Computed example of a mutant assay.
Amino acid sequence: MLDQRRAEVEAMIARVALGDRQAFESLYEATSGKLHAVCLSVLKDRAAAEETLQDVFIQIWNHADRYAANGLSPMTWLITIARNRAIDRLRARQGRPVQAPAEVAASVASPTPGPEEETIRRQQRRLLESCLEQIGETQANALRTVYLEGASYADLAERSGTPINTVRSWLRRGLLRLKDCIGQ
């Protein structure tokens, strides 16, 4: 089984050396998982490992003719390429200045809204509540139920014991009145 697999990979590499794209695709499908794992084990960063894997396969495409079938596993040749490319990328990354954790933390935006955004949200909420009070209880309740609570038109029709077309009319008229109120 292993000899057969080795022969298949060697044949794919030989066809890649001749520029066979289908063989290259087959080689990628057969070996990319293992080569990605090699890159990931060296780099400890999924994105960098994926980029390195692309470089590895470009190098395989360009240098497949250098592979010599010598009875050893062709995976050894492929893994060596992957490992060396990953180490090269790691060395290049280590040459860059590393940001201190405080600098990194300062550059990440906080997911919570700031004071200005919080004030704007409160004002918008007050305006919405004021306009909902002005448009009438039936339409306001329909709008709250559907657009704030997430109920469907059918759910609202069932809850209120009203035909669905009546519910649609309430919502349509309510939205138009709400639009007019907010636009003032």
Rank of each mutant, 00 (worst) to 15 (best):
L127F: 07
V98A: 15
L78Q: 10
A82L: 15
A48D: 06
I60K: 00
D88E: 13
L40Q: 03
L18W: 00
N165P: 04
W77F: 04
A48H: 03
Y147S: 07
A82V: 02
Q94A: 15
E116C: 11
S169K: 12
A11Q: 12
L171W: 00
E149Q: 14
E116Q: 07
H36Q: 15
L2S: 13
S160L: 07
S160W: 04
A23Y: 09
P97Y: 02
T76N: 06
L43M: 08
L40V: 03
V9M: 05
T112A: 14
L90W: 03
A68F: 10
Q4G: 08
T138L: 04
E29N: 15
I87D: 01
R46W: 01
I120G: 06
A49L: 01
L143T: 00
A17Y: 02
G161A: 06
R15L: 12
R66S: 14
R91Q: 14
A109C: 06
T138N: 03
S73Y: 06
C131F: 08
A157M: 01
Q54I: 09
G71K: 15
Q124R: 13
L90E: 04
R46N: 12
G136K: 08
A142K: 00
S107T: 01
E103K: 14
E137A: 09
A23E: 10
L171Y: 04
S152L: 07
L143K: 01
D180G: 08
N70Q: 11
R93P: 01
G183Q: 10
R168I: 13
G161N: 07
A86W: 00
F24I: 00
G19C: 09
P74D: 02
E25K: 14
E50C: 07
V167P: 00
E50P: 01
G183K: 11
L90S: 07
E103W: 11
S41D: 12
V98P: 06
A109K: 08
A49W: 00
V108P: 08
A14D: 05
T162Q: 13
E50M: 04
P163M: 11
G114W: 06
S107Y: 03
R6N: 13
R83I: 13
L171D: 03
A37I: 01
R93H: 13
S160T: 13
L40K: 08
T80M: 07
V42P: 06
G161S: 09
R83M: 05
I135A: 13
T112E: 05
R122W: 06
M1A: 06
L128K: 15
G19I: 04
I120Q: 12
T76Y: 05
T166Q: 01
R91G: 06
T145Y: 07
A151H: 15
R85D: 05
Q134W: 06
V38K: 10
V16R: 09
G174L: 09
D65W: 02
V167I: 15
A92I: 03
T112D: 05
R168E: 14
N62R: 13
W77G: 03
Y153W: 05
R5N: 12
I13F: 11
E50K: 07
R172W: 12
Y28P: 02
